[in-house]
Each structure stands twice: as structure tokens, then as C-alpha cells.
Nucleic acid binder design. Structure first.
Length: 429
RNA sequence: GUGGACGUAGCUCAAUAGGUAGAGCGCUGGUUUGUGGUACCCGUGGUCGUGGGUUCGAUUCCCAUCGUCCACCCCA
């Protein structure tokens, strides 16, 4: 590792040019699918008042309690880097009157910040792409989001993923359930592991997705949320699973699936992969009908999901999908001062005529040998040569660098046509 | 926040039961001064993450610190 005095912050990564293409590739695929469903992009600030997250996510969640990048700004206000974007979307929707008896289908993409201990698939600055829908109550929109997310994986060529769904009911149902659950686990209090004992009174639902194998039999016999659902919630849930079955979505009902954030109700879902170690959730979402009122607005039903782009890319790399950025079409070699002078105007006109052309200009002079070496290293498909004899005859020499074809010398006036053909054939391969 | 592994050249990694380090790849140049890629040859590269301690002497042992990785926790 190079010795530099100042390094990047812990858990925050540089994406170097050789990686950024992968990100562009994934971002582009995601955007295309989401927009094909008619969703519109919203961009909100990275900084918000700390209170927004406290009120939306719940004071006792780890994220709010100890993972936020919060500080006091020059006015004395407590502000925070966003740890997620749902709260910001709700805030923006309310602030601009977009949630008044309207339907909104929004999506966003951006960095989130959580001061966690980094590990695989978990970074302090990480990118989420998410979708938030406001004003729709029925199970149809729940289904839409699950199908939309499914299509994202298909667009990316990921097939080793599975959807888990559950319903955590409405507030009163969940409270009843929590009470019974606590009662149940209290009987075995001494047998609970340390984590579960702590969770018993802070977040009892979390005991259910404990990874400790010794806890599993006890968990299996615990009361299940699905038995506590009202008729209406049950119906809502059944309609969802019926469609999932009909469409052969790879899914299973996980009665222990819960949510880390307080604002969720009814439908919750997660997409999981076995290929990423312990951070196997690539996408998670659910309904949050209560959040808008919780933030002081009129009740608006809402549902959304967020996916971790970092994890998606890790996953795509693990499953060996190749990312090859498109090669340069040409590298421009100019020998001598006069040729260099003329190159500027020739390049200018070919670039204007062919905006898709990827052409790298040789800088820093050099003889034939060095310029050709650079041309080769650039990965360009062709070298375009302008030297003394070409200057005299108003031609350029074009040498293929990736095939055995002969080089040829053409009139400078033919350059645009020549490369128009190359772009057409090469870029469609 | 808890636990474990690990930091040696730009990259991937060796070595030294404590005597200041090597290889491959890369990079530079040459064989080849209007033609790259292959081959061969030459060269370039490191206060062994940082700070302290033990020692005649530390990259090696000890402590601290920073960072990376993995798991728990939490979560996307």
C-alpha cells in the first residue's frame, strides 16, 4: 500500500476507474427497469435535521441511537447525514404538497451514511436505490413492487435470489402479538442467549430471526405473527401470495421476518442471496402506512423498498458476470509538429460528426514506436496515423490493432464515413 | 459495540528460529530510429502500516495506534 498521510475514512471507499464502469452498468439497468414501471426520480439532500430521522425511524433503533453521522451546524441545529432515504421522501412529499390525495410513484438513488463497523457488504457510505409509493392502500401495489424488484434481478442476470414475505399486521395486532411473544420467551428466560435476553424488552420480534442454532427449537414453537392478523390483514396477505404463486416468483413465507425500523406495518419483504455471506439481504421493503402521520401529516398509505447497490455489485462479481467497458474506437497518432497542428482540426470535425466516437488523442509527443505502444495499451481498436507522407497527400493511415487486417490509407475526407461504419458494426456486437 | 485473522515494491505474494529483504506481474529503456501486441535483454522500484518498548541490533518479539478482512450485533 502506498504511504500517504491522509487516507480515506474508515468504511468509505474510492471507486477507481476500473470499478466505476460496473456501477454505471448496474445503475443504468436499475433505472431502466424502474422507469419502465412509470416511476419518477426524486433527489433529496444528503443532510436533514436529526429530528427527522429520530421521529421516523424510532429513537431506540441502533441506526438512530449510535450509527448516525450527526453534528451541530453553525446555527446550532443538530443535523445528520441521511442513514436512509424514506424519511426524506416523506418529508419532501409533505413539504411540497405532493401527498395530498395523490398517488406518487418515486424512486431515488444515492449515498447513505451509517457509522457501523465495516465488513463484507457493509460500509459507512453506501449506495441505495429505492422506490417509494404514496397513496395506494391495496395489495396490488405491494405486488407491483415485488414484481418490479424481481425484474431488477432478472435484468442483472441474477437468479440465485429468493423473496421472503411476511405480514406484521397493524399496530394493535402487533402489540397483542408482542405481549404474547414476550410472555412466551419469559418462560424460558434463563435459556435465552445474551442477545435475546437484551432484545426481550427492547425489540422482542428480533429474537425470532436470531442466528443462534441453540435458539431455533425455542423459536419454532413461539407464537406466530400470522395467527394474530385481523381478517383484513390476512386477506391482504393472501392476495399477495396468490399472485406470487401464480407468477412463479421464487418466494417463501417467513413468519419470522421482521423489520429493523419502527415505521413498518403489514407487508414486509426481503430479497436474499446465499452468495454474500452474512449480509445476504440485497433488498428490503414494506408498507409504512403510519409514517406520514408520525411526521405530522394526514394519513397516507405508503410502501417502498431499498436495495443496496454495493451488495448487488459484490453479488454480481461473486457470480462472475463480466463487466467489460466498451473499448476505445481509436487512438490518434500524430508525428511531428505540423501533423499535431493539423490533428486538432481533423479531430474536432470527426468528433462533431460522430458524437459516439471514443477517440483518444496522443499527448506528450513521441516517435512512432512510443505512440503505437500507447495506442496498444489504450485498448483502442484502431490507430489513426497522421505523419509526413499523410500530410503531403491529405490522407490518414488507419491500422487495426485488434485484428490481422491490413492497415490502409484513406483520404482525410473519408475519415468520418470510415468510422461511422466501424461504430455501427463494433457497437452492435 | 463484541470476537478472530491480517498489514512486506504500484499489484499478487515469498523470506529472515532477531543481523535493514526477494519473485512474478506492472512500469522504463533496448534488440527493432514509419508501426504496437509475442520473445529475449537491461533497468526502475520498499525507512517491511505508524508510534513506543525489550535488545548491542527489530521487518521479525511485546504494547499501543491506524487500517483491511471475516463473524457476531445491526442492517440495504
Amino acid at each position: 500500500m502506498a504511504k500517504v498521510e491522509i487516507q480515506s475514512l474508515k468504511g468509505m471507499r474510492d471507486l477507481l476507474p476500473e470499478q466505476s464502469y460496473q456501477w454505471q452498468f448496474v445503475e443504468e439497468k436499475l433505472r431502466k427497469v424502474i422507469e419502465s414501471y412509470g416511476y419518477q426520480e426524486i433527489r433529496t439532500p444528503l443532510l436533514e435535521k436529526t429530528e427527522l430521522f429520530k421521529r421516523s425511524m424510532g429513537e431506540v433503533t441502533d441506526v438512530v441511537e449510535k450509527e448516525m453521522y450527526s453534528f451541530t451546524d453553525l446555527n446550532g441545529d443538530s443535523i445528520s447525514l441521511r442513514p436512509e432515504a424514506t424519511a426524506s421522501c416523506v418529508r419532501a412529499g409533505m413539504q411540497h404538497g405532493k401527498l395530498q390525495q395523490q398517488i406518487q410513484r418515486w424512486w431515488y438513488s444515492g449515498f447513505m451514511f451509517r457509522h457501523e463497523k465495516p465488513q463484507k457488504g457493509r460500509y459507512r457510505q453506501f449506495q441505495q436505490v429505492g422506490v417509494e409509493v404514496f397513496g395506494l392502500q391495496g395489495p396490488d401495489i405491494d405486488i407491483e413492487l415485488m414484481l418490479l424488484s424481481w425484474q431488477l434481478w432478472q435484468a442483472l442476470g441474477l437468479d440465485n435470489v429468493i423473496l421472503e414475505v411476511n405480514s406484521i399486521g397493524n399496530l394493535t395486532e402487533r402489540q397483542n402479538y408482542k405481549q404474547d411473544l414476550v410472555k412466551y420467551f419469559e418462560q424460558y428466560k434463563s435459556q435465552l442467549d445474551v442477545d435475546s435476553q437484551r432484545r426481550l424488552y427492547t425489540n422482542p420480534l428480533r429474537i425470532l430471526d436470531s442466528k443462534n442454532p441453540e435458539m431455533q427449537t425455542m423459536i419454532a414453537k413461539a407464537p406466530k405473527m400470522l395467527d394474530y392478523l385481523s381478517k383484513q390483514c390476512q386477506q391482504h396477505f393472501v392476495e399477495i401470495t396468490t399472485v406470487l404463486t401464480q407468477l412463479k416468483v421464487p418466494y417463501r413465507v417467513n413468519p419470522y421476518l421482521v423489520r429493523g425500523l419502527d415505521y413498518y406495518n403489514q407487508t414486509v419483504f426481503e430479497w436474499l442471496t446465499p452468495d454474500l455471506g452474512s449480509q445476504g439481504t440485497i433488498c428490503a421493503g414494506g408498507r409504512y402506512d403510519g409514517l406520514v402521520t408520525q411526521l405530522g401529516g394526514k394519513a397516507v398509505p405508503a410502501i417502498g423498498f431499498a436495495l443496496g447497490v454495493d451488495r448487488l455489485i459484490d453479488l454480481i462479481q461473486a457470480t462472475q458476470i463480466k463487466f467489460t467497458p466498451p473499448a476505445l474506437h481509436a487512438y490518434w497518432i500524430a508525428i511531428g509538429e505540423q501533423a499535431q497542428q493539423q490533428s486538432w482540426s481533423l479531430q474536432q470535425s470527426i468528433r462533431q460528426a460522430l458524437p459516439q466516437l471514443r477517440l483518444l488523442n496522443n499527448c506528450n509527443g513521441g516517435n512512432f514506436k512510443t505512440q503505437f505502444k500507447r495506442a496498444d495499451k489504450s485498448g483502442a481498436l484502431y490507430a489513426i496515423v497522421l505523419a509526413e507522407s499523410e500530410l503531403e497527400q491529405a490522407t490518414v493511415t488507419i491500422k487495426p490493432l485488434r485484428s490481422d487486417e491490413q492497415q490502409q490509407t484513406i483520404q482525410q475526407t473519408e475519415l468520418v464515413n470510415y468510422f461511422a461504419t466501424i461504430i455501427r458494426t463494433k457497437d452492435n456486437q
